[in-house]
């Protein structure tokens, strides 16, 4: 049983960095980010363990989707509020995701992976991240991109969910086995996880630097 698969390892590394750099952070978003990293790692570890034992684990990931969507929506709100006070579109996106999430359970049941919600929320997240960058470009002041935690956090979201959306669109083409039993979609997923948690790790480091400068 391979408990520590590549994704778990990536998430563990990101969690370790989050613990080191965000533990003293008093901002709600960054505190939530730390909690989310713990949740992600726990779910992934449990899912991996259950999968290894041949126990059905999709219900676990289905529950996790709710927390994932909530956290990412809050994160986008946290980043967008620097440039705009407009919340309507974000609330609309959240409501739409919730409707799809719960109606999918009613229609397809709890034990079927909620892929429709994942696809829809991925598109919504990509749109909002692009909107964030549009506002950033439009803003009259400039930010130091290299050390801006929000910029890199959003970049992680954009890369991951844009990649997921493309991967979902071409799912049929990409489900081919490479390196023995490893499918191409799995490899893409590992790469996307690496990019997401890599960028988030960097954003946590930037945040710690920012906090140090502000104190």
């Amino acid at each position: 049983m391979l408990l520590f698969n590549p994704i778990v390892c990536i998430e563990l590394t990101c969690l370790a960095v989050a613990v080191v750099f965000l533990i003293k952070d008093k901002t709600l978003f960054w505190r939530l980010a730390l909690c989310y990293q713990i949740l992600v790692f726990t779910v992934e570890l449990a899912g991996s363990y259950m999968g290894g034992l041949g126990i059905h684990n999709l219900w676990l990931y289905n529950i996790f989707i709710f927390f994932e969507a909530s956290f990412i929506f809050y994160g986008i709100h946290h980043c967008l509020k620097i440039y705009t006070k407009q919340k309507t579109a974000l609330i609309f996106g959240l409501i739409l995701t919730c409707i799809i999430y719960f109606s999918s359970f009613i229609i397809r049941g709890f034990l079927v992976y909620n892929s429709i919600t994942i696809s829809v929320m991925s598109v919504i997240f990509v749109i909002f991240t692009l909107y964030y960058y549009y506002l950033l470009l439009k803003d009259s002041s400039f930010i130091d991109i290299r050390t801006n935690p929000e910029f890199w956090w959003i970049a992680g979201v954009l890369f991951y969910y844009f990649g997921s959306t493309i991967s979902n669109i071409f799912y049929d083409v990409l489900t081919i086995n490479i390196f023995g039993h490893m499918s191409l979609t799995y490899l893409i997923f590992v790469i996307l996880c690496f990019i997401l948690y890599g960028l988030w790790t960097y954003s946590y480091i930037c945040r710690a630097k920012q906090r140090k400068l502000q104190s």
């Binding site: 960058y133 950033l136 470009l137 930010i143 991109i145 970049a155 954009l158």
Partner: peptide, 9 residues
Amino acid sequence: LMMYIRSYN
């Protein structure tokens, strides 16, 4: 997009 943002910034 990142490259463009970097250059524009």
